[in-house]
Design a protein around this nucleic acid. Structure first.
Length: 669
DNA sequence: GTTCGTTGCCTTTTT
DNA sequence: GGCAACGAAC
């Protein structure tokens, strides 16, 4: 006979949450859905994050261990925010929970198991620029004649390969559908892809897409790993499912298993990443892949006033491919309609936005509650200048992320090379910083380096300087070259890498300070960036982990900003894409002119392109809680063609005029 | 042959 | 403002 024995928990018992009281009926149904496969269709502003958060809390509340939960989100920031909210509901050590983007989770798997794929330990991660550099050398060494004909540049090749990876289609299919003008070059492109893949293994580097393709390969080819991970991750949750692609879908399948517990949450009306290979059919045909899946809908919008929501609903109704939803407002109307504001010029538009922001501030709206959204980064230029000259603080999600800035990448390439001594891209970047060394000389020293033992050894035993200084370099470069070699010595102490902050200090003091002063006008500003980088790095003892985080997290500044900066009251400037999941009291959507939004190129592509632009417009307007301004300049001044007459966006003209109020703005004198 | 400054052209969205 | 192509200087 068996005896029942209970082990008392040393932590206080989890407080039971009153889920019924804190959630609406639809949310409650999704949160407490039984195990199995679940699709949650959640409209804009319907408490999608809230639902997922409570789902995680509910699982923990029902005895699921944090380690058994895998939470996949679109950005690392979203994962962090969700986990922070979970801890407010239930006492749990969120470190134990697995959460993050597909790439960061894939990276974790690969760090443990890269040898099984023919890689060495401690591979480097290449960003798009590194990828481009490596592809350039692959093309040059391939012997393929790229002269005369219109041969795709390295960047375009990277896009083609990436698209093939993410959609799990062949090069032939990708070229046929997206790059028909390269039709005759398919053989060359396919050959280059093979060469590139080989080169990545040789240099022990992975690009962003490898983090996923190789993870999927790893799980497909190794039954033991597949079983182990499937057993561990009892509950898999996926956010923003409408923006997943074929490859991510396979990843989910591998990690969940045919009968696993999977909950995906998304809104097909907000699918805006097809250009990156996202496939709306993932969400539209979810039940075909998972026949026993339950479907829940959440159709109450808590965010926006009815006036804003009506405009959004009317707009998205023009799209054909979608799941019909009936999004209902929970809030009371205010009686003011969204504003349609034509302005004379781009600068008038900037002035208008600034003036309205100041007026709003007087009315008690904090700057944190105001955002300006646009289709493309360069749309914000004029506004940035105007805001600066008026002294209105703003924070901008810029085109370049922290890690992508030249000076940060420069410093990182020293660390990368010191750790992965086959990292050709980093080596090249590093030595080309030396005055007098360009591509040709760099190639020569690289080939010499490859012949040394240190390039192939697991651990670095000798000194870099002993190997590098005897090499022949141009006379002009000699002195700096030696200095570089000694700097590298400081990065590896007794075969062990120094700590990240020590490395950064050595690189900066040893060589980079001089370089930066000579090269950049704003050296002061960049020095502060590196200071911040060093601060950030101090939390890591393993440089590899530091580097992974640097390339996979969206940036140091968002991750580790001193409170003062983070809390500072400021207007947000962002692209519509990056505004995903966020909300503000007042939203200005600027450059709402045809050709700008929708973007001219997206319209040329196909009907599908236009529908995606409309979904992006839908995302834009549904960010507004109370006030929405749609502005566009009537005249667009261009350096080459002079003034061009602009028409309002077709997304505005196709709407009934009584959904908004037109403002006639006149300039003062 | 190699490096480096100058000129002219173009500008979507990102993990 | 960023990048490729071109041409001058080493």
């Amino acid at each position: 006979m068996a005896r029942e024995y209970k082990l008392h928990s040393t932590t206080p018992t989890t407080p039971r949450i009153d889920y019924k009281a804190e959630l609406n009926e639809q949310q409650h149904a999704a949160v407490t859905a039984p195990p199995g496969q679940t699709l949650v269709i959640a409209g804009a502003g319907s408490g999608k994050t809230r639902t997922l958060t409570y789902r995680v809390a509910w699982l923990l509340d029902n005895g699921v261990l944090p380690e058994q939960i895998l939470l996949l989100t679109f950005t690392n920031k979203a994962a962090r925010e969700m986990l922070e909210r979970v801890t407010m509901l239930v006492p749990v050590d969120i470190q134990r929970l697995w959460s993050g983007t597909f790439h960061s989770i894939g990276n974790k798997f690969l760090r443990w198991n890269s040898e099984r794929l023919g890689y060495r330990k401690g591979f480097s991660i290449m960003d798009r620029e590194d990828q481009k550099d490596l592809l350039e050398t692959v093309v040059t060494n391939s012997g393929i004649d790229t002269e005369g004909i219109r041969f795709p540049k390295a960047e375009v090749l990277g896009d083609i390969f990436s698209m093939a990876d993410n959609t799990c289609e062949s090069i032939e299919e990708i070229v046929a559908t997206r790059y028909p003008y390269f039709d005759k070059l398919i053989d060359d492109i396919t050959k280059l892809r093979k060469l590139y893949q080989k080169k990545k293994v040789e240099t022990n580097c992975m690009d962003f897409d490898d983090l996923l393709t190789q993870s999927v390969r790893l799980l497909k080819e190794n039954e033991d790993l597949r079983e182990r991970y499937q057993r561990q991750f009892e509950f898999v949750l996926v956010d923003e499912y409408q923006d997943t692609n074929r490859l991510q879908c396979e990843f989910i399948e591998m990690i969940t298993g045919k009968d696993g517990n999977l909950m995906v949450v998304g809104d097909d009306a907000q699918s805006i990443y097809s250009w990156r290979g996202a496939d709306v059919t993932n969400i539209l045909n979810f039940h075909e892949q998972w026949p026993r899946a339950r479907v829940f809908k959440i159709e109450v919008n808590y965010r926006s006033v009815p006036e804003v929501l009506e405009l959004a609903n009317a707009s998205i109704a023009n799209n054909r491919a979608q799941i019909r939803k009936n999004l209902q407002p929970a809030r009371e109307g205010k009686g003011t309609l969204p504003a349609l504001v034509p302005l004379d010029s781009g600068s008038a538009q900037a002035s208008f936005v600034c003036q309205r922001i100041l007026e709003q501030q007087d009315e008690g709206v904090e700057l944190n509650e105001v955002a300006v959204l646009y289709r493309a980064h360069f749309h914000s230029m004029e506004l940035q200048m105007e805001l600066t000259s008026r002294g209105i603080p703003f924070k901008i999600t810029s085109g370049l992320r922290f890690f992508e800035q030249a000076h940060v990448k420069d410093v990182a390439c020293f660390i990368k090379f010191a750790i992965n001594r086959r990292d050709e891209v980093s080596f090249m970047r590093m030595v080309k910083l030396i005055p007098g060394i360009g591509g040709a000389s760099a190639n020569k020293v690289w080939n010499e380096w490859l012949k040394t033992e240190a390039a192939n050894a697991e651990v670095m035993t000798g000194k870099f300087s002993d190997l590098l200084i005897p090499m022949t370099v141009p006379k002009k470069a000699r002195e700096t070259w030696d200095q570089f070699a000694y700097t590298l010595d400081e990065l590896i102490v007794d075969g062990k890498p120094a700590t990240p902050p020590e490395m950064i200090r050595s690189i900066y003091d040893g060589v980079y300070e001089d370089y930066m002063r000579a090269k950049f006008k704003n050296a002061e500003q960049r020095q502060q960036d590196l200071e911040q980088l060093s601060n950030y790095s101090s939390r890591f003892t393993d440089p590899l982990e530091f580097l992974s985080n640097l390339s996979l997290l969206s940036g140091v500044d968002t991750e580790n900003k001193p409170d003062q900066q983070e809390e500072r009251d400021a207007v947000t400037l962002t692209t519509a894409h990056q505004a995903k999941g966020l909300e503000w009291h007042t939203v200005f959507a600027i450059w709402m002119a045809d050709g700008m939004f929708p973007h001219a190129r997206a319209v040329e592509e196909s009907d599908l392109g236009l529908e995606e632009e409309r979904r992006l417009f839908y995302v834009t307007v549904t960010r507004a809680k109370d006030e929405l301004y749609l502005t566009y300049p009537v005249l667009n001044h261009q350096a080459r063609d002079g003034d061009i007459l602009m028409k309002p966006s077709r997304f505005i003209t196709e709407l009934s005029a009584d959904l908004m109020e037109k403002w006639n703005v006149r300039s003062g004198w």
